[in-house]
Protein backbone atom coordinates (compact mmCIF):
# COMPACT_ATOMS: atom_id res chain seq x y z
CA UNK A 1 0.00 0.00 0.00
CA UNK A 2 1.21 3.49 -0.77
CA UNK A 3 1.88 5.70 2.15
CA UNK A 4 1.03 9.39 2.20
CA UNK A 5 4.64 10.22 1.51
CA UNK A 6 4.69 8.03 -1.55
CA UNK A 7 1.63 9.76 -2.89
CA UNK A 8 3.31 13.04 -2.36
CA UNK A 9 6.54 12.13 -4.06
CA UNK A 10 4.58 10.67 -6.96
CA UNK A 11 2.72 13.94 -7.19
CA UNK A 12 5.97 15.85 -7.19
CA UNK A 13 7.41 13.59 -9.84
CA UNK A 14 4.48 14.00 -12.17
CA UNK A 15 3.56 17.57 -11.35
CA UNK A 16 4.41 18.83 -14.84
CA UNK A 17 2.40 16.08 -16.44
CA UNK A 18 -0.55 16.79 -14.14
CA UNK A 19 -0.32 20.50 -14.91
CA UNK A 20 -0.33 19.74 -18.64
CA UNK A 21 -3.34 17.42 -18.37
CA UNK A 22 -5.16 19.92 -16.20
CA UNK A 23 -4.61 22.65 -18.78
CA UNK A 24 -5.80 20.42 -21.60
CA UNK A 25 -8.96 19.58 -19.64
CA UNK A 26 -9.67 23.21 -18.78
CA UNK A 27 -9.10 24.52 -22.31
CA UNK A 28 -11.08 21.66 -23.82
CA UNK A 29 -14.07 22.55 -21.70
CA UNK A 30 -14.07 26.28 -22.34
CA UNK A 31 -12.26 26.89 -25.62
CA UNK A 32 -14.23 25.72 -28.60
CA UNK A 33 -12.12 23.88 -31.14
CA UNK A 34 -9.22 23.34 -28.73
CA UNK A 35 -9.79 19.62 -28.41
CA UNK A 36 -9.59 18.64 -32.08
CA UNK A 37 -7.23 16.74 -34.36
CA UNK A 38 -6.41 19.89 -36.28
CA UNK A 39 -5.44 21.77 -33.14
CA UNK A 40 -3.47 18.78 -31.86
CA UNK A 41 -1.19 18.87 -34.89
CA UNK A 42 -1.14 22.64 -34.86
CA UNK A 43 0.18 22.73 -31.30
CA UNK A 44 2.76 20.03 -32.00
CA UNK A 45 4.08 21.80 -35.10
CA UNK A 46 4.09 25.15 -33.35
CA UNK A 47 6.19 23.86 -30.48
CA UNK A 48 8.69 22.05 -32.73
CA UNK A 49 11.13 24.95 -32.92
CA UNK A 50 11.07 25.62 -29.20
CA UNK A 51 11.45 21.87 -28.65
CA UNK A 52 14.73 21.82 -30.55
CA UNK A 53 16.09 24.87 -28.76
CA UNK A 54 14.96 23.58 -25.37
CA UNK A 55 16.58 20.18 -25.75
CA UNK A 56 19.91 21.96 -26.29
CA UNK A 57 19.12 24.38 -23.50
CA UNK A 58 18.44 21.46 -21.15
CA UNK A 59 21.93 20.08 -21.71
CA UNK A 60 23.46 23.50 -21.15
CA UNK A 61 21.46 24.17 -17.99
CA UNK A 62 22.23 20.69 -16.66
CA UNK A 63 25.92 21.64 -16.65
CA UNK A 64 25.00 24.73 -14.65
CA UNK A 65 25.28 27.10 -17.60
CA UNK A 66 22.85 29.08 -19.75
CA UNK A 67 22.67 29.89 -23.47
CA UNK A 68 21.11 33.21 -24.41
CA UNK A 69 22.29 33.04 -27.99
CA UNK A 70 19.95 30.29 -29.28
CA UNK A 71 17.51 32.72 -30.93
CA UNK A 72 20.23 34.62 -32.79
CA UNK A 73 22.07 31.44 -33.78
CA UNK A 74 18.77 30.14 -35.13
CA UNK A 75 18.40 33.32 -37.22
CA UNK A 76 21.93 33.24 -38.62
CA UNK A 77 21.86 29.52 -39.46
CA UNK A 78 18.48 29.92 -41.18
CA UNK A 79 19.71 32.97 -43.08
CA UNK A 80 22.88 31.15 -44.20
CA UNK A 81 20.77 28.27 -45.51
CA UNK A 82 18.39 30.61 -47.33
CA UNK A 83 21.12 32.84 -48.72
CA UNK A 84 23.24 29.98 -50.05
CA UNK A 85 20.27 28.30 -51.61
CA UNK A 86 18.92 31.44 -53.23
CA UNK A 87 22.09 33.25 -54.23
CA UNK A 88 24.78 30.61 -54.12
CA UNK A 89 28.22 31.67 -53.03
CA UNK A 90 30.13 34.21 -55.03
CA UNK A 91 33.87 34.32 -54.62
CA UNK A 92 34.95 37.36 -56.67
CA UNK A 93 38.57 36.87 -55.67
CA UNK A 94 38.67 33.58 -57.60
CA UNK A 95 36.13 34.71 -60.13
CA UNK A 96 34.07 31.80 -58.97
CA UNK A 97 30.41 31.18 -58.41
CA UNK A 98 29.33 28.15 -56.42
CA UNK A 99 25.73 27.04 -56.68
CA UNK A 100 24.44 25.23 -53.61
CA UNK A 101 21.83 22.48 -53.41
CA UNK A 102 19.19 22.38 -50.70
CA UNK A 103 21.08 19.65 -48.86
CA UNK A 104 24.37 21.55 -49.13
CA UNK A 105 22.72 24.70 -47.81
CA UNK A 106 21.17 22.85 -44.89
CA UNK A 107 24.43 21.17 -43.92
CA UNK A 108 26.34 24.45 -44.13
CA UNK A 109 23.72 26.13 -41.94
CA UNK A 110 23.98 23.33 -39.37
CA UNK A 111 27.74 23.69 -39.43
CA UNK A 112 27.49 27.44 -38.86
CA UNK A 113 25.19 26.89 -35.85
CA UNK A 114 27.51 24.24 -34.43
CA UNK A 115 30.50 26.49 -34.86
CA UNK A 116 28.83 29.40 -33.06
CA UNK A 117 27.97 27.03 -30.20
CA UNK A 118 31.53 25.72 -30.22
CA UNK A 119 32.77 29.28 -29.96
CA UNK A 120 30.47 29.84 -26.97
CA UNK A 121 31.98 26.73 -25.41
CA UNK A 122 35.53 27.94 -26.01
CA UNK A 123 34.82 31.25 -24.31
CA UNK A 124 33.14 29.56 -21.36
CA UNK A 125 35.39 26.56 -20.83
CA UNK A 126 38.80 27.97 -21.61
CA UNK A 127 38.55 31.72 -21.05
CA UNK A 128 36.24 31.16 -18.04
CA UNK A 129 33.81 33.85 -19.18
CA UNK A 130 30.54 33.30 -17.31
CA UNK A 131 28.01 31.57 -19.63
CA UNK A 132 25.53 34.40 -19.17
CA UNK A 133 28.00 36.95 -20.50
CA UNK A 134 29.60 34.83 -23.24
CA UNK A 135 26.26 33.83 -24.75
CA UNK A 136 24.83 37.33 -24.31
CA UNK A 137 27.71 38.58 -26.45
CA UNK A 138 27.10 35.81 -28.98
CA UNK A 139 23.43 36.74 -29.05
CA UNK A 140 24.39 40.23 -30.24
CA UNK A 141 27.16 39.07 -32.57
CA UNK A 142 25.04 36.45 -34.33
CA UNK A 143 22.14 38.89 -34.70
CA UNK A 144 24.46 41.47 -36.24
CA UNK A 145 25.93 38.89 -38.62
CA UNK A 146 22.42 37.88 -39.65
CA UNK A 147 21.60 41.46 -40.53
CA UNK A 148 24.85 41.79 -42.46
CA UNK A 149 24.26 38.56 -44.37
CA UNK A 150 20.67 39.37 -45.26
CA UNK A 151 21.30 43.05 -45.85
CA UNK A 152 18.45 43.71 -43.44
CA UNK A 153 15.79 42.23 -45.71
CA UNK A 154 14.10 38.84 -45.81
CA UNK A 155 15.40 36.20 -48.23
CA UNK A 156 12.35 34.52 -49.72
CA UNK A 157 11.33 32.07 -52.43
CA UNK A 158 13.43 29.08 -51.45
CA UNK A 159 11.66 26.41 -53.46
CA UNK A 160 9.73 23.26 -52.83
CA UNK A 161 12.58 20.96 -51.92
CA UNK A 162 13.73 23.19 -49.09
CA UNK A 163 10.14 23.60 -47.96
CA UNK A 164 9.83 19.85 -47.28
CA UNK A 165 10.95 20.01 -43.65
CA UNK A 166 8.68 22.88 -42.74
CA UNK A 167 5.50 22.04 -44.58
CA UNK A 168 5.30 18.40 -45.61
CA UNK A 169 4.19 15.30 -43.81
CA UNK A 170 5.84 11.92 -43.56
CA UNK A 171 3.65 8.93 -42.71
CA UNK A 172 0.87 11.31 -41.75
CA UNK A 173 3.00 13.20 -39.25
CA UNK A 174 4.46 16.64 -40.06
CA UNK A 175 8.19 16.41 -40.81
CA UNK A 176 8.78 19.14 -38.23
CA UNK A 177 7.32 16.93 -35.55
CA UNK A 178 9.41 13.99 -36.72
CA UNK A 179 12.50 16.16 -36.61
CA UNK A 180 12.08 17.26 -33.05
CA UNK A 181 10.90 13.81 -31.96
CA UNK A 182 14.16 12.37 -33.28
CA UNK A 183 16.15 15.09 -31.48
CA UNK A 184 14.32 14.38 -28.24
CA UNK A 185 14.87 10.64 -28.64
CA UNK A 186 18.58 11.01 -29.24
CA UNK A 187 18.94 13.45 -26.35
CA UNK A 188 17.20 11.08 -23.94
CA UNK A 189 19.38 8.19 -25.06
CA UNK A 190 22.56 10.25 -24.78
CA UNK A 191 21.73 11.60 -21.33
CA UNK A 192 20.63 8.29 -19.88
CA UNK A 193 22.82 5.81 -21.64
CA UNK A 194 26.19 7.32 -22.48
CA UNK A 195 29.20 8.37 -20.48
CA UNK A 196 28.92 11.86 -21.91
CA UNK A 197 25.36 12.15 -20.62
CA UNK A 198 26.35 11.02 -17.15
CA UNK A 199 29.25 13.49 -17.16
CA UNK A 200 26.85 16.33 -18.06
CA UNK A 201 24.98 15.66 -14.83
CA UNK A 202 28.23 15.26 -12.87
CA UNK A 203 29.66 18.57 -14.07
CA UNK A 204 26.45 20.37 -13.15
CA UNK A 205 26.10 18.56 -9.83
CA UNK A 206 29.61 19.29 -8.58
CA UNK A 207 32.13 20.57 -11.06
CA UNK A 208 35.03 20.28 -8.63
CA UNK A 209 34.27 16.68 -7.75
CA UNK A 210 33.86 15.93 -11.44
CA UNK A 211 37.29 17.34 -12.18
CA UNK A 212 38.81 15.47 -9.24
CA UNK A 213 37.27 12.27 -10.61
CA UNK A 214 39.20 12.66 -13.83
CA UNK A 215 36.47 14.12 -16.02
CA UNK A 216 37.56 16.45 -18.79
CA UNK A 217 35.22 19.22 -17.70
CA UNK A 218 36.28 21.66 -20.41
CA UNK A 219 35.65 19.18 -23.19
CA UNK A 220 32.26 18.30 -21.78
CA UNK A 221 31.22 21.95 -21.70
CA UNK A 222 32.57 22.51 -25.19
CA UNK A 223 30.46 19.65 -26.51
CA UNK A 224 27.33 20.78 -24.70
CA UNK A 225 27.44 24.29 -26.16
CA UNK A 226 28.26 22.94 -29.59
CA UNK A 227 25.22 20.68 -29.42
CA UNK A 228 23.07 23.62 -28.32
CA UNK A 229 24.34 25.58 -31.34
CA UNK A 230 23.61 22.70 -33.69
CA UNK A 231 20.09 22.29 -32.30
CA UNK A 232 19.50 26.02 -32.73
CA UNK A 233 20.46 25.58 -36.36
CA UNK A 234 17.92 22.75 -36.65
CA UNK A 235 15.39 25.22 -35.26
CA UNK A 236 16.56 27.69 -37.91
CA UNK A 237 15.99 25.10 -40.60
CA UNK A 238 12.42 24.46 -39.42
CA UNK A 239 11.51 28.15 -39.19
CA UNK A 240 13.04 29.09 -42.52
CA UNK A 241 11.62 26.12 -44.33
CA UNK A 242 8.14 26.67 -42.89
CA UNK A 243 7.98 30.37 -43.77
CA UNK A 244 9.86 29.92 -47.07
CA UNK A 245 11.80 32.93 -45.90
CA UNK A 246 14.70 33.89 -43.65
CA UNK A 247 14.25 37.22 -41.91
CA UNK A 248 16.85 39.12 -39.90
CA UNK A 249 14.51 39.20 -36.89
CA UNK A 250 13.80 35.45 -36.85
CA UNK A 251 13.96 33.78 -33.44
CA UNK A 252 13.98 37.06 -31.58
CA UNK A 253 13.28 36.33 -27.90
CA UNK A 254 13.16 32.56 -28.40
CA UNK A 255 15.84 32.05 -25.77
CA UNK A 256 13.38 33.15 -23.11
CA UNK A 257 10.65 30.70 -24.15
CA UNK A 258 13.26 27.99 -24.21
CA UNK A 259 14.62 28.76 -20.74
CA UNK A 260 11.04 28.97 -19.47
CA UNK A 261 10.26 25.53 -20.89
CA UNK A 262 13.35 23.98 -19.27
CA UNK A 263 12.57 25.55 -15.93
CA UNK A 264 8.89 24.59 -16.01
CA UNK A 265 10.07 21.07 -16.83
CA UNK A 266 11.80 20.93 -13.46
CA UNK A 267 15.43 21.28 -14.48
CA UNK A 268 17.39 23.16 -11.84
CA UNK A 269 19.09 26.35 -13.03
CA UNK A 270 22.01 25.54 -10.74
CA UNK A 271 22.66 22.38 -12.73
CA UNK A 272 22.89 18.67 -12.12
CA UNK A 273 19.20 17.96 -11.88
CA UNK A 274 16.54 17.62 -14.54
CA UNK A 275 15.59 15.69 -17.63
CA UNK A 276 14.76 16.07 -21.30
CA UNK A 277 11.39 14.47 -20.63
CA UNK A 278 10.61 17.26 -18.18
CA UNK A 279 11.61 19.79 -20.80
CA UNK A 280 9.31 18.15 -23.35
CA UNK A 281 6.45 18.64 -20.88
CA UNK A 282 7.56 22.22 -20.29
CA UNK A 283 7.53 22.95 -24.00
CA UNK A 284 4.09 21.38 -24.35
CA UNK A 285 2.74 23.34 -21.39
CA UNK A 286 3.82 26.60 -22.99
CA UNK A 287 2.47 25.47 -26.37
CA UNK A 288 -0.91 24.43 -24.97
CA UNK A 289 -1.16 27.65 -23.02
CA UNK A 290 -0.45 29.71 -26.14
CA UNK A 291 -2.96 27.79 -28.17
CA UNK A 292 -5.70 27.90 -25.55
CA UNK A 293 -5.29 31.61 -24.91
CA UNK A 294 -5.40 32.38 -28.62
CA UNK A 295 -8.57 30.32 -29.13
CA UNK A 296 -10.15 32.08 -26.16
CA UNK A 297 -9.15 35.35 -27.89
CA UNK A 298 -7.29 36.61 -24.85
CA UNK A 299 -5.59 39.87 -25.91
CA UNK A 300 -1.88 39.28 -26.73
CA UNK A 301 -0.66 41.57 -23.97
CA UNK A 302 -2.60 39.58 -21.40
CA UNK A 303 -1.21 36.38 -22.85
CA UNK A 304 2.25 37.52 -21.86
CA UNK A 305 1.17 38.38 -18.34
CA UNK A 306 -0.46 34.98 -17.93
CA UNK A 307 2.56 33.14 -19.34
CA UNK A 308 4.85 34.94 -16.92
CA UNK A 309 2.63 34.00 -14.01
CA UNK A 310 2.64 30.34 -15.07
CA UNK A 311 6.45 30.32 -15.07
CA UNK A 312 6.52 31.83 -11.57
CA UNK A 313 3.92 29.39 -10.33
CA UNK A 314 5.78 26.38 -11.76
CA UNK A 315 9.07 27.31 -10.15
CA UNK A 316 7.46 28.34 -6.86
CA UNK A 317 5.74 24.95 -6.55
CA UNK A 318 9.00 23.23 -7.37
CA UNK A 319 10.86 25.22 -4.72
CA UNK A 320 8.25 24.52 -2.07
CA UNK A 321 8.41 20.82 -2.83
CA UNK A 322 12.19 20.59 -2.67
CA UNK A 323 12.21 22.57 0.56
CA UNK A 324 9.92 20.05 2.21
CA UNK A 325 12.11 17.12 1.30
Amino acid sequence: MLKLNDHKSLLVKFQSLLALLLMVVIFSSCAEGFFSTDNFWLVLTQVSVNMCLSVGMTLVILTGGIDLSVGSVLALSGAVMAGLLKNGLELPAFNLFVGVTALGAILTGLLVGSFLGFFNGLMIAFLRIPPFVATLAMMTIARGLTQLWTGGAAITGLGEVFGYVGTDRFAGVPVRVWTCAVMVGIAILVLKKTRFGRYVYAVGGNERAARFSGLNVNRIKLRVYTIAGALSAVGGLIVTSKLDSATPVAGDGYELDSIAAVVIGGTSLSGGKGSVLGTVLGVLIIGVLNSGLIILSVPPFWQKVIKGCVILLAVAIDKLNTKEQ
Binding site: Y201, A202, G205, N206, R208, A209, A210, F212, G272, K273
Partner: peptide, 9 residues
Protein backbone atom coordinates in the same frame (compact mmCIF):
# COMPACT_ATOMS: atom_id res chain seq x y z
CA UNK B 1 31.06 17.09 -0.05
CA UNK B 2 32.87 19.73 -2.07
CA UNK B 3 35.37 17.54 -3.88
CA UNK B 4 34.52 13.90 -3.47
CA UNK B 5 30.87 13.37 -4.20
CA UNK B 6 28.10 14.47 -6.50
CA UNK B 7 25.60 14.65 -3.66
CA UNK B 8 22.46 14.56 -5.79
CA UNK B 9 23.54 11.42 -7.58
Amino acid sequence: KAEGLILEM
